[in-house]
Design a protein around this nucleic acid. Structure first.
Lengths: 176, 176
DNA sequence: CTTGAAATGGACAGCGT
DNA sequence: ACGCTGTCCATTTCAAG
């Protein structure tokens, strides 16, 4: 008998099938280019266009595909400066005032993390002066003890979540 | 007479107009949802559909819109663990072996940064074991002296480059 | 999941401002 | 130079097998 049922893993809409190879192939192409037609995808994966369409619809409504967006060039929209801000707080860092930073279009990510800091905030700004302004705003938040900022000098890779998974990472011998 | 000419700022294809308000509006909506029709965008910005289409085409070929992609859910594709790895190296950190990490679908970002570390690598993996495997691979790179890893406990915001810019950041008085 | 049909939206040309 | 109107065609989307 089966020890784990598919029923265990559900989502808001319908049940989640553990993403077969065709799903992953479709997700892979769409994560690289979402402008291509279902017809061209169907050729790649070896299915008919409506079949691909139905799978994509399912992947959308089940939340695997969160959204489809245009990726903009930071410098071209006037924000050439990228930085990561580590925020140290006294007490609980994830306050309402802190999360209100998301109203700023310069703030792209806010993560609560383990390690010797509380929060990591990814920001993209127009200038060093704007970065200072953002830091000033962070220091206005109650409980902020200090920050450390890492300014990006060069970005060699910046992409969103990939569908693929390396299969040799978990079996790797880490004993030298 | 004008002191700066538009000619100064060019790109691969055609010249860059400094992104008027309509461009920014269009970029704003597309960066949030690129599935909507040109007709609906035209209603929002107050232009005809072909006019919007032409602008989008221009924004694409000029590189302001780098690509249009599907945003996937990390957990749903089997990679629930997000982390930032700070890499310290002896000498120049940006070696060919280091940049080869981009072949791993788990590696999403690689930045050279200022501050008390050399590189920041954003990774999304299936498990702690896979994270260890990735770290092992990083330590295989010549010249790596050490790493510090910040594991994300909660992500409160994660989005791509926004078209909008706060106009009060650069004029903010930072003297208390 | 496939084949076939209907409807929607995208892409292009020409015109006018 | 830029945007609008009208047209054709590709693509999406639905229904039936």
């Amino acid at each position: 008998m089966a020890v784990a049922k598919t029923e265990d893993v559900r989502k808001s809409n319908g049940m989640i099938r553990p993403l077969d190879d065709l799903d992953r192939k479709i997700l892979g192409t769409l994560s690289r280019d979402a402008t291509q037609s279902y017809a061209s995808i169907s050729r790649e994966v070896g299915l008919s266009a409506p079949a691909v369409h139905e799978r994509v619809k399912r992947l959308r409504s089940s939340g695997v595909i969160k959204s489809t967006v245009a990726q903009l060039d930071g410098a071209a929209v006037g924000k050439p400066l990228l930085g990561f801000i580590h925020v140290d707080t006294t007490g609980w860092g994830k306050t309402r005032a802190m999360l209100a930073l998301e109203d700023r279009p310069e703030v792209e990510e806010i993560h609560g993390v383990t390690g010797d800091t509380c929060l990591i905030i990814k920001v993209r700004v127009a200038s060093p002066l704007a970065l200072e302004g953002l830091l000033a705003q962070i220091y206005d938040v109650e409980g902020v003890r200090g920050t450390r900022t890492f300014v990006s000098l060069s970005t060699h890779l910046e992409r969103s979540v990939q569908a693929e998974i390396s299969d040799d990472l978990e079996s790797r011998s880490v004993i030298k």
